[in-house]
């Protein structure tokens, strides 16, 4: 079975985000970019399925700017077999919406015919939490979101999902879309020998037009602002004073 893993290039999760002064968005110029952490977990899971003999080829896909090639190299260095880069914009500040991404991915799925698509549950930039579900709808495939355990057995997969109030286990028919949550696994580091091997793995470059998908946004960004700051509070000297203040505030 072939596994397809879409990965997104996003601002590194350790970088402090700065809103641009003109309110047009978040400043991404000269900022360290990395693979979306949830997508890294998806790549890791695909590799583990391959190591367990349940997947025989892993194809990583990224859709966005040309620089996303580096993100794909990371996926290849971790253990993906080949990569497809779909250049959909030249502007590093442009975010391709999940709907357009899902349409491009659908076209790629039609071509590649994978048995499983593993993706991150959300990207840490737009926090939309939608691509996997949308792709699943467009393909008419089964979907299992927020996975914390993935168990593929022949024509079905048992997925444990993190839902409000606990965990839910469902069984989905293959082919399926699985979106992964934080605790599914700990992604491996790309070792230097594997980084060198990754250089020789194939990376195809395509454009959104190759798939006939219009990527123009449905949502227009009106403005982007810093969140409202909370007013500074006070420091209390003792537990007694804390209780007194809480009573005054009517909180207890």
């Amino acid at each position: 079975m072939k596994a397809l893993v879409p990965v997104k290039r996003v601002i590194d999760y350790n970088v402090k985000v700065r809103v641009k002064a003109d309110g047009s968005g978040v400043d991404l110029a000269n900022v360290k970019m990395s693979m979306n952490p949830f997508d890294e977990i998806a790549v890791e899971e695909a590799i583990r399925l391959k190591e367990a003999g349940k997947v025989d080829e892993i194809v990583a896909v990224s859709i966005g700017v040309k620089q996303a090639q580096e993100t794909l190299r990371t996926a290849l260095a971790m253990g993906a077999d080949r990569a497809i880069l779909v250049v959909a914009t030249d502007d590093v500040h442009a975010d391709i919406e999940p709907l357009a991404v899902a349409k491009i991915l659908k076209a790629i799925v039609d071509e590649e015919q994978p048995g499983l698509v593993l993706c991150g549950k959300q990207a840490i930039d737009n926090d939309m939490n939608a691509t996997g579900q949308m792709l699943s709808a467009l393909l008419g495939w089964s979907q299992a979101t927020f996975a914390s355990e993935v168990d593929v057995e022949g024509n079905s997969a048992k997925i444990t999902r993190e839902v409000d109030g606990g965990l839910q286990t469902i069984s989905v028919k293959m082919p399926a879309i699985v979106t992964v949550d934080l605790r599914l696994n700990e992604p491996r580091y790309a070792s230097l020998p594997n980084i060198m091997k990754a250089k020789k793995k194939p990376l195809d470059e395509k454009s959104a037009a190759d798939y006939g998908v219009d990527v123009s946004p449905r949502l227009e960004v009106v403005k982007t602002e810093e969140p409202a700051q909370r007013a500074a509070g006070i420091t209390v000297g003792s537990v007694d004073e804390l209780i007194e203040k809480l009573k005054e505030a009517g909180a207890v």
Binding site: N14, S34, Q69, E70, R73, T74, A77, Y189, A190, S191, L192, I195, M196, A198, K199
Partner: peptide, 17 residues
Amino acid sequence: SEDHQLLSNTLNRFLGD
């Protein structure tokens, strides 16, 4: 270069974690 960037990321993450 891309390789050096990946190597530097790997080390940065490994040591940071």
